[in-house]
Structures are given as C-alpha cells and as structure tokens.
Write a protein that binds this DNA or RNA. Structure first.
Ligand code: SF4
Ligand code: SF4
Lengths: 153, 153
DNA sequence: ATATTTTAAGATAAAAGAGTCTCAATAATC
DNA sequence: GATTATTGAGACTCTTTTATCTTAAAATAT
C-alpha cells in the first residue's frame, strides 16, 4: 500500500475538517462516527497531527480539533508526512539503504520519475481544493456500503 | 511502502537471474548469499514465483531456479503482481472499498494519474532492459555497506 | 544403495501495524 | 464543587508481515 491506514484515516479526517465551518472545533467522536473509523484509533492519529502543528485541539465540552491553517494552505503532503514520514519520497523502490546518488540501482531512473509524480500529486493538492471539487461533484468520503459522507450534507 | 519487502526481494532475485547465463539453474543459496537475503525467506518468495510460472526450479545437485521466459520478455510488473497481487494498481489511495466508478472520492483523478504512472513504470521495464543498463553503467543491486553486486562481476 | 545437494512445505517465532481499552487531564455547565 | 464532555497518554490485544527452523522430497554422484 502506498499510504498506511493511519495516514489514510488522517487524510480523510483532514478533508472532513476542511469542509467544516472555519475555526470551529469538531469533536473527534463526531468524525469517527461519520467517517466510520474507530474513535480511539482516530484519536491517536489526530494527536499526531496536533503534535505536528496541523491541527489544534481543545478539551472539554464544545471541544474538539480544527485545522490550524486554512485548508487551502494545507497540501495533502503535510498530512502524509506528519503520519507516514517522508520515506515514501526519499526511499528506494528496491528498498536498498544508501541509495541513488553515487551508484543508482537498475530501476532508479524510472522510479525517480514515478516518485516525482507522487510528490507532485501530494504537494499540489490542497485540502480545500479537493473539498471544493467534491462539493461540486457530490463525491464521497466513505464506503458505498456505509453511510456516505457527501460534502454537501 | 509501495512494494512489500517480499516483492522487493523477488525483484532483486529476478534481476540477478536475468543477468546469468540463459537456461542455467542458479542455486537459491548463491543468490541469498550474494543478495544478502535470508536463504529460507528468499526460498519461499521464489517458490511463489515458481508457482506463478515466472521461474522454474530443479532439485538436487546442480539444481536451482531459472527464468522460464527470456528476461527481455518479463516486465517487472509480472514479478510484482505474482508477489504483491494487483491491488497496487486497482486499489484506492484512500483505502475505500467499492471505489471510483460511480462516485469517486476527492482525490480520485490525481490518484488515477499517479497510479497509471506506476503501472507504466512496471509494465514498460523488462528485466533484461534493466540488467543491460546496469551492465553499461556499473549499477549495483545491494547496499553500499555490504558486498555490492555489480552486474559485471 | 547411500550420502549429498538442492528445492518444497509447514511449523514456529519475532517484529510491525492496526485496533481496543482504561484512566488521567482539562474545560464547560449545572 | 460536582458532573459531564472532551482530548491525552499509555498499556494492552489482535493481525499481518517478515523471518527462522525443521523435516520431507527429489535428483545427482559416489
Ligand atoms: S538508486 Fe534509486 S531506485 Fe535504486 S535503490 Fe536508490 S533510490 Fe531506489
Ligand atoms: S474514487 Fe479513486 S481515489 Fe477515491 S477511493 Fe476510489 S479509487 Fe481511490
């Protein structure tokens, strides 16, 4: 898998938050229900995003989490790196340590291209951009079988 | 990680084989030593490749494994699919079941592009092509720290 | 025939990833 | 101040991946 499950959950939550009223704290419980992710597991993931400065949290009634920056200033990459680290973009497809520069392995050139295209995808898409697209086209964020979260709820 | 460790080991072994005298059976022990992969683990991986018809094996003294087809007719994709399956190319980046067609999720378009570029990389590169390139440029197949396998050994 | 070299297969173990549970800390409301 | 709603942190469990170990089967060589 390209992204870990934690990372995917983090991304989905971030998109969910970007679709909410700006500045409002959203309880994790609400997100875990809507997105159909285990509450405790999602909590841990969002704690990472908070620690990385992508979210801020507030305890107690009316508490929750929210984006620090405007969603339009948050590329997907930020969320991915916060959770999965940057190895996806630096590591070798053949899993060799000490790769690339001096003595690249056989697939280096092709892999470097592909890696760039992944990087571009993650750097060039912001949360807001995707949310806007989703609102326009009624795209969903959860499985077919469960409760679909449409961005126009 | 894009590819599982098993898959990476399988690819490295396949490249190693493609660099050997055509038709010759190569003992797995030799490969595991040269590539610095656990013998038993590599054995299991190569069993999969044998089961999938990519390698054929021969028991006993002078036995080993070899490529069924010429390396020039084996795209990396074949090895990847044999070990990791095709989920990399069909599954969603956001890990949603029942994706895409009817109601794509927010990042579908971007992800589909990236996925295509991964598919191209794996389909268009053959073992032989990479080995040839490697021989020309003295590229390596193992870590800096260990015994480097140069294709010109 | 017997011993040797090799792959095949399966049991087991260790490590990493995913998920759950419990309790503490903080803030609002009553 | 007590109760309630929320995040924070840690221990714990379950599952998958990765790796090891043991034994069997096949082929060769002696
Ligand atoms: S040379 Fe490139 S493809 Fe090869 S191991 Fe290094 S980073 Fe990976
Ligand atoms: S629509 Fe595309 S990106 Fe979204 S879940 Fe499906 S395959 Fe993945």
């Amino acid at each position: 898998m390209l992204l870990s499950k934690s990372c995917v959950y983090g991304l989905r939550a971030a998109l969910y938050l970007a679709n909410q009223e700006k500045g409002k704290f959203i309880p994790i419980r609400q997100m875990s229900d809507k997105l159909e992710i285990s509450f405790h597991f999602l909590t841990k993931i969002l704690q990472q995003l908070t620690a990385e400065g992508i979210l801020e949290s507030f305890k107690g009634p009316n508490g929750g989490v929210r984006l620090v920056r405007n969603g339009s200033e948050v590329p997907l990459m930020d969320v991915v790196v916060a959770i999965d680290g940057s190895k996806l973009l630096t590591e070798c497809a053949l899993g060799l340590p000490g790769c690339g520069v001096k003595a690249p392995c056989p697939i280096h050139d092709k892999w470097a291209e592909t890696r760039d295209s992944i990087r571009e995808m993650l750097e060039q898409s912001t949360l807001t951009e995707l949310v806007n697209k989703s609102r326009k086209e009624n795209l969903r964020l959860t499985s077919e079988d469960g409760f679909d979260i449409l961005f126009n709820d």
